[in-house]
Design a protein around this nucleic acid. Structure first.
Length: 429
DNA sequence: TCTGGGGTCCTAGGACCC
DNA sequence: TCTGGGGTCCTAGGACCC
């Protein structure tokens, strides 16, 4: 059996930890740039605040009902996430790979070592311990496959009163009931496009109906072997294995919406240089080097009047002469790319840098076959990373990144980094 | 009068996830 | 005036090779 453990309204729960006065109140957390609502408590949901909905469209409800609003505080969420994961790791035992961290607020657990008769109790134990040790409330879904455990988890969370946030699908009857109560678009792996087609072209509305489509049909219409696996998993046949931990990323991106639109080349270039620098740091953190770089910009289309939101994107791609993790080398490629992309008169909303073709960094421990100067460059990078890490972000930076940064994103409602910065620690008194 | 087959590597694009 | 950011996997199709 597999379990998926998923934190309830994770970002909002993190904020509530330091604001006990908000325990029963509606809370929402906004995306970067204070753009969209990316986490909401049940109370906010009941008021009709949509998930992923633009903040400005919900301002009236939020004001009327005194909803607490926070900008996202990734220092806090990242730290709370590690605490939850550490707790889970303790609970399921060390050794074999029983834990797969799936996202910042979710983990799969392999429960094959737990006797069937103890699954319910063990799941409740997990839920209670995580809450006791971290203050974060989680939901637990258990079933024979990952896809079914996601179904279980969703229902556990949906009906907290009845399930106590734990649902174990250990009989065929329970599985059928769960699938019949799950809409096809709520199945893990069925996104908006597939859901629309399934409903409108094939009359498939529930997970239960989806379970019974022919495998060959799934292969043809649901993305090849991906669709095949999905249907098999719905039928209780495990096809999606637990993933190895500590895999390196295969692509690294740094992209941002601008706090206000950018029209000139200079700030656009600064932004791309800053994103390249940040991406290069992430690259070095996992000891990789990149072989290719893609720079993209998003403009607002000129059609449709001044207020239309009509984003268009354009990008330039370049391969590097050899894999590198050096900021200077990446900048020397990225900056010309954005200069090629720039068109005077356009309104730029966003830009980004994507590093790909990642390989282990060959320049790491002094490479005999490269010129001495290159090894020293790597040492310089390490020194810069250390200074920026231990002092503050961007204590040392490349001039190309600019000094003014008036394109920086808005984050007006961010809480303190209570658990990761001494000067922002929570005070009792 | 006639024109193979099989393989690899790469990239773009489409779907999905949280 | 205002709509996030960072990932994964798979497939099709072209280039190239023997």
């Amino acid at each position: 059996m597999h379990a998926i453990i998923d934190c309830n309204s994770f970002y909002c729960s993190c904020e509530r930890l330091f604001r006990p006065d908000l325990r029963e109140k509606p809370v929402v957390v906004l995306s970067n740039n204070d753009g969209c609502i990316i986490s909401r408590t049940d109370e906010a949901k009941e008021l009709g605040v949509g998930m992923g909905a633009p903040y400005y469209q919900n301002r009236d409800i939020i004001r009327q009902h005194d909803v607490a609003v926070f900008s996202s505080n990734y220092h806090l969420y990242g730290d709370m996430s590690s605490r939850v994961i550490d707790t889970l790791r303790f609970l399921v035992g060390e050794g074999e790979e029983r834990l797969e961290v799936y996202s910042v607020d979710e983990a799969f657990v392999d429960l094959r070592h737990v006797p069937a008769s103890e699954l319910q109790d063990f799941s409740v134990h997990i839920r209670e311990t995580v809450e006791e040790w971290t203050g974060i409330r989680v939901s637990v879904g258990v079933a024979s496959t990952k896809v079914l455990s996601k179904v279980a988890n969703r229902l556990a969370k949906k009906d907290k009163q009845r399930t106590g946030c734990v649902l174990v699908l250990d009989t065929e009857d329970k599985v059928r009931d769960a699938l019949q109560r799950t809409e096809v678009g709520d199945v893990w792996g069925i996104g908006g496009r597939y859901a629309h087609r399934l409903r409108n072209e094939y009359g498939i509305n529930t997970a239960w109906q989806l379970r019974h489509v022919p495998l060959e049909w799934a292969r043809k219409n649901l993305g090849g072997v991906v669709g095949l696996r999905l249907i098999r998993e719905l039928n209780g046949e495990p096809c999606i294995p637990m993933k190895e931990p500590l895999e390196n990323k295969k692509m690294i991106a740094t992209t941002r919406m601008f706090g206000k639109p950018v029209f000139d080349l200079a700030p656009l270039r600064e932004a791309v240089a800053t994103f390249t620098t940040r991406a290069a740091e992430k690259l070095r953190r996992q000891y990789s080097a990149a072989q290719a770089i893609d720079v993209f910009v998003v403009t607002n289309g000129t059609q449709g009047g001044a207020y239309a939101y009509d984003p268009r994107s354009d990008h330039r791609y370049a391969r590097l002469p050899q894999p590198t993790s050096l900021t200077q080398e990446l900048l020397s490629i990225a900056v010309p790319l954005v200069e090629q992309l720039y068109r005077p008169g356009m309104k730029y909303l966003k830009a980004g840098v994507i590093l790909s073709g990642l390989v282990p960094d060959g320049s790491l421990q002094g490479n005999l076959f490269v010129p001495e100067a290159e090894n020293r460059q790597r040492l310089l990078m390490d020194a810069v990373d250390n200074i920026n890490f231990s002092m503050r972000d961007d204590a040392v930076k490349f001039l190309a990144s600019g000094l003014t940064r008036n394109w920086k994103m808005r984050q007006e409602l961010r809480s303190k980094r209570f658990t990761t910065r001494w000067e922002e620690m929570y005070e009792v008194g």
